[in-house]
Nucleic acid binder design. Structure first.
Lengths: 248, 248
DNA sequence: CAGTGGTCTAGACCACCAG
DNA sequence: TGGTGGTCTAGACCACTGA
């Protein structure tokens, strides 16, 4: 079981690191089927020689793909291509981006965009004092013209200048935070289920007692500050969460 | 904003890599509060000198903690400790282990443990031909003596010798697979919700129309072979999924 | 035994950020 | 301008695997 690496074009003047150029090339080769699942790569030393790179640089490229679950390496054995079933590990993604990238035509109606005093729970999640004024967003999210979810978010004071309703209708919250200079770093989510209240059913166009998915999420930035706490509900008849997991 | 790294005891005769010894020591220092959130670490060169290690080794230790979301590094700035809110990224975990490690006294009743011909969907998920005989497991999982979930699993033929009911009652499926020499590598999950059928409600001790969480999961090993396909339901009143996400 | 990846070293130059 | 992390090199020795 062998495989030719082909020749990899390298651009040493590019700002793209060499290890990353190699990794990208291998990734494309795997996804195109040029390197089929189970294929054995050449060993590090040979590959380094052929490409005129050092072994650590080759190792870094391979390790990048191992971390993404596309390669498996075993001492004494070599490096093999994994069946590319599971693509990406979980990401810090927003519903808007997910819908947009899958062609589902997202749209948003702003139900509320105000300031409130933080309740005990909100204060705890955001790491602020109870009663601190926080921004509250209440949005109805549509996909292909159909109501899909009700998104309620709490933001700490002074994080982003001011969110106009028009802006909120055009893009997702994560996108807004990022362009506001916030570096999203980590999030803690809880996914559950319950039945819709009559008001929720009406809002989402569901029948009374319809099942809902609930998702509570707190998102943190670089420095560990909470930048957003959300309590969301989704129509279970039209939405489910897809997750890809990789072993550590 | 400074911080002393203290002296790190290194054992060069240990099989534990030096970079990992350093990483573990830093991790403990962070978790114990010795390195509080926001603390600035010494730069790589100084730390390498102090510990008598090379810079790449120090870098590797730090990168390990960056990947785990505990440190943030910025060019020209330095390395800082992140608020340790979100601990672990998502893992390939089993319900049994999660319950056991949180002291919830898991227990299992085996409802079925047979062989069946794979349906179209099961065949697709397991990557076998339709009609292939597959092992079907149907289990009722309890926590603290209360029914929590109904777990239905399909396993490809010839993966594990034979699963005795007694074994299935004592441990989780993942544990069994691992001890059977299977290396779990990745999984794809879908989490949704629906209401219980009358039979399901009876089985789980819920009322008619109670909300359920559903989780479908296909797990793959090293070589990308599907080793398990599961269709599970959980009582929403007693269970929710908790996930920790890290930015790429 | 030969071949593989895993670890480690001691340098070098560069890009970015702050003052 | 000085300090930081980001990248890259050319070696070295070791541990594990399979024949």
């Amino acid at each position: 079981m062998w495989s030719t690496p082909g020749s990899i074009p390298l651009d040493r003047t590019s700002p793209v690191p060499l290890y990353f150029q190699v990794a990208q090339h291998l990734e494309r080769a795997i996804e195109s089927g040029e390197l089929p699942p189970g294929a054995q790569l050449e060993n590090e030393v040979q590959l380094a020689e052929q490409l005129g790179l050092s072994r650590p640089t080759i190792r870094r490229a391979m390790q990048y793909l191992v971390d993404r679950g596309m390669l498996v390496r075993r001492r004494g054995i070599g490096t093999q291509v994994v069946q590319a079933k599971v693509k990406r590990p979980v990401e810090l993604s927003s519903l808007w981006d997910d819908l947009a990238s899958s062609g589902q035509q997202p749209a948003t109606t702003v139900l509320a965009n105000t300031a409130e005093q933080a309740s005990a729970e909100v204060a705890r999640q955001l790491g602020v004092a109870e009663g601190t004024p926080v921004t509250v967003l209440d949005r109805l999210r549509f996909a292909r013209g159909e109501p899909l979810a009700r998104l309620r978010n709490y933001l700490p004071p002074g994080l982003v200048p001011g969110l106009a309703d028009e802006t909120l209708q055009r893009q997702g919250l994560y996108q807004l935070l990022r362009s506001g200079g916030v570096t999203l770093h980590a999030a803690a989510q809880t996914i559950g289920a319950r039945v819709a209240t009559p008001a929720e059913a009406r809002l989402l166009g569901e029948t009374r007692g319809a099942p809902l998915l609930t998702m509570d999420r707190t998102t943190y930035d670089d420095r560990g500050r909470a930048v957003e706490y959300g309590r969301h509900i989704y129509r279970a008849s039209r939405y489910s969460f897809e997750l890809a997991l990789l072993a550590r």
